[in-house]
């Protein structure tokens, strides 16, 4: 059995000291061990940005792709070998700006992938421009007079796209975050876990203290039913999206892999690909 240490490697992240991404990395490592994964059975597929580097900081198979495309790459990996556990990860720019189209469709498709977004409401690696998650009026290098576009609500979008697992957490709450990632890994289908991950260098508004003051933990509502879609949507709206915990889970809907006709439980990558003469002749005969 692997422990969280087996998911560590000796690479020093290039994140700023105090960056929220460190705890997310730790939470992924702990959750992977807690659900019984081995490093070789995990593939972490990440996008581009500060957060996109995460696939290089976890001792597992990792692919650091191109900006905004972590999800289609991750879906390709899962389709090719469903025996692998696949985590996709990236920032809010990666998932909700350049890659938003893929996010919505990955949610609809519902392959068994855990998508962890490291949401800092700003573009960090390019040194401080606005993000779709930035608040209206937020001043950045690209919005010197303050952002005049409305703030995107990924949770509402996920719900309306038919998500089967929607959760949100805060990087300071390592315990909650770890348990939500575990729940996501155990969920059969696509899980979206949006994580507030403060950028200590470029975001002077949405700081650790700001989140502590403004977010609501769903544990405060003992009657909250995470299987109720309407309740979930209401709660997201009531809290203006500033809530943490498991917001919604649909355990009924089967993942894509189980709905594809002829798709076998073994990884496709491990199957014999030689076409038999008999099958070949049959296929050719259709052209007569």
């Amino acid at each position: 059995m692997a422990t969280f240490k087996d998911f560590r490697n000796n690479v020093k992240p290039n994140w700023c000291p105090g960056c929220g991404d460190f705890s997310i990395q730790a939470a992924i490592q702990r959750a992977a061990a807690n659900v019984g994964l081995e490093p070789e059975s995990l593939a972490v597929i990440s996008g581009i940005g500060c957060s996109g580097r995460i696939s290089g900081y976890i001792n597992a198979y990792g692919l650091h792709g191109i900006h905004g495309r972590a999800l289609p790459i991750a879906q390709g990996v899962k389709l090719a070998n469903r025996e692998l556990t696949v985590i996709a990860s990236g920032g809010d720019g990666d998932g909700f700006a350049i890659g938003m189209g893929h996010t919505v469709h990955a949610i609809r498709r519902n392959l068994d992938i855990t998508y962890i977004v490291m949401d800092n409401q700003i573009y960090g690696l390019t040194k401080g421009q606005t993000s779709p998650r930035s608040a209206e009026g937020f001043k950045t290098k690209s919005t010197p007079e303050g952002s005049i576009e409305s703030t995107l609500s990924p949770l509402e979008i996920a719900m309306s796209a038919g998500a089967t697992f929607v959760a949100q957490s805060f990087s300071s709450d390592l315990k909650q975050l770890t348990s939500l990632i575990e729940a996501g890994l155990n969920h059969k289908g696509f899980s979206l876990i949006n994580v507030f991950s403060p950028c200590v260098t470029f975001n002077k508004v949405n700081t650790y203290d700001w989140f502590k003051e403004n977010i609501v933990n769903l544990e405060q509502f003992p009657d909250y039913d995470s299987s109720n879609r309407v309740a979930a949507m209401n709660k997201i709206m009531e809290t203006n999206g500033l809530l943490t915990g498991l917001i919604y889970q649909n355990k009924e809907r089967k993942p894509y892999e189980e709905l594809v006709s002829g798709f076998r439980p073994e990884g496709l990558a491990n199957q014999d690909i030689q076409l038999s003469r008999e099958d070949f002749e049959k296929l050719v005969a259709e052209f007569k």
Binding site: L63, I73, G76, A80, H102
Partner: peptide
């Protein structure tokens, strides 16, 4: 874009 990157992911994983 999704088509080609999905194909890259699947080839990387061996199919």
């Amino acid at each position: 874009i999704a088509a080609v990157t999905m194909a890259i992911g699947a080839n990387y994983a061996g199919v």
